[in-house]
Amino acid sequence: MKKTIARILLVEDDRILRRAVETTLRRHGFNVVAADDGEKALRLAKTEVPRLVLLDLIIPKVQGFEVLRRLKQNPKTASIPVLILSNLGQESDVKQAMDLGAVDYLVKANLSLDQLVKKVGELLKGGED
């Protein structure tokens, strides 16, 4: 299997969920940097310039929606695809995230790690074209 070392920024405040996603993505050959709050996420997005951001919405310091807004406002980070991984699943939340420029919105509890890896693969492949 050909694997490019793509850097992914994972923003997740729950330690267990962060561990599960980090472990899975690393196993599949991705380079993961993780942030457990909004401030760190914004800082890492600028310094690490990831190929993809996996963003939780309910996070400390700067809320996920605000992180997304600022990422899309900054020309340096605006082109990085942001995949929302949240447990909020109301239409209004989904709509707000999509309006702000997220590529997709997945509800964590309804998602398997297997599906997540597939989705990440698709998004990174799309970015290469």
Partner: peptide, 21 residues
């Protein structure tokens, strides 16, 4: 309900993913 759902889903996702691993 929206809050409770979020609170319930987070540990459930944790169990689900770690069992998958």
């Amino acid at each position: 309900v929206s809050f409770a759902t979020h609170q319930l889903r987070t540990p459930l996702a944790g169990i689900k993913w770690l069992l998958e691993l």
